[in-house]
Write a protein that binds this DNA or RNA. Structure first.
Lengths: 216, 216
DNA sequence: AAGCCAATGTGACAAGAGTCACAGACTTTT
DNA sequence: AAAAGTCTGTGACTCTTGTCACATTGGCTT
């Protein structure tokens, strides 16, 4: 099996990754990294998507961003180099195939392969910007806006208008309580932007089109 | 004049930085970078401190973190590589001396000097963690806690218990309104943690000692 | 000293979000 | 079919924060 990463075309580097990486498959919902764990591998997502969240001491969670296929995780890059434990939690959002690269190789390749260096730089850049976006949302937006955006992003992410999840799950990811989400979803339903069923939020297509406005 | 950076001891690299960098001095309060500006230089702080803030479209500000002497700015590192405009605002907090290094040199050194590469990695790592801390504060803490922490961090930062600033300035940095800060400061005064005067907040020493608890 | 302006203090109110309690509705288990 | 468990809907209340209005204070200018 050959590795296909849009940003890595150098056959030598591809070969290196294939020979040194360990492939792992995670089922939807499976936790990949938890806060406090040490990271020994730099994971590159081959297929699927990973949800990255911040958690606080009291168990509150907060969705930060997705890592999609072809991307890697900035936190692991930084944690590795200093061998600090992880600050974040990562959960497979879909069935996800990951290739884990030993830290040592990452350091080697940074010296040897221009493309690897660019890949790493790109990753930092992208994650930084997503963190900034997350901060904007949390600091400056109200929960209804955040919920709306969350639903749209998630439905794009999973490429479906049918989101199978409970209000409680949504609430956790947005760092609020179930009742708040129930109420806000009900409002969205009244505005004909979603349809609600048990364990399911159906994103109506007039909402799905709004992404551009919201994502800026 | 010779450059003193704790993380850069390689004399060859020091020499390179000295020969290729341009030194600039910023007065306290002077804006170094504003959102939308393009960054052509990687700034390394030689002396002083720089305050990094996020801003939204409506002019709200939000303090993210300080860059202190010996450090560089992760945003500029990422912005440079992609020549995107800045997402953030940076203001000199004290009188600050900066040496600006051309982007091209940064790329060169990444290949040539192990120490430069480590320096850059360190920077990313540190900024990432500060962003996460900022997110924690915004998402999970109330304004009174944030204010307390802000005062302590600022007083450590400037190495003084006398903070010369108005309530409005504090409010801006915490992304709230002047009245809220006035009220909360008054509460802190009642709790004997600060003393208030026009244009001045005096951080009492029983408060200053709290940093460890708060910063985790 | 009078006037002015920026900074601060404060009460009153509104909006958003979090919490509690509890009622239904739907599923799964027994 | 009954019971148990999960999920959702909702009213009532509280807390925090934001906003408006206005009074007061301190310091500077003229």
């Amino acid at each position: 099996m050959s590795i296909q990463l849009p940003l890595i075309t150098d056959p030598l580097l591809q070969d290196e990754i294939e020979r040194n990486g360990k492939i792992k498959v995670f089922e939807p919902g499976q936790t990949i990294i938890e806060p406090g764990q040490y990271i020994k591998m730099v994971p590159i997502i081959l297929e699927g998507a990973v949800k990255v969240m911040r958690t606080d001491e009291e168990g509150h969670e907060l969705f930060l961003y997705y890592i999609e296929s072809g991307e890697t995780c900035a936190v692991s890059l930084t944690c590795c180099s200093t061998s600090d434990p992880s600050d974040i939690k990562a959960v497979a959002e879909e069935k996800t195939t990951v290739i884990g690269v030993p830290v040592r190789k990452h350091e080697e390749w940074t010296n040897e392969f221009r493309q690897w260096k660019d890949f790493v730089a790109m990753t930092y850049q992208k994650r930084f910007q997503e963190m900034l976006k997350a901060i904007d949302d949390i600091a400056f937006k109200r929960m209804d806006e955040r919920l709306l955006k969350y639903l749209i992003v998630k439905s794009k992410q999973l490429n479906t208008l049918e989101l199978t999840m409970t209000h409680q799950q949504i609430a956790s990811e947005l760092g609020t309580s179930r009742e708040v989400i129930s109420r806000l979803l009900k409002q969205l339903e009244k505005r004909k932007l979603v349809e609600l069923e048990r364990n399911r939020v159906y994103v109506r297509d007039n909402l799905a089109g709004l992404l551009e406005d919201i994502d800026r």
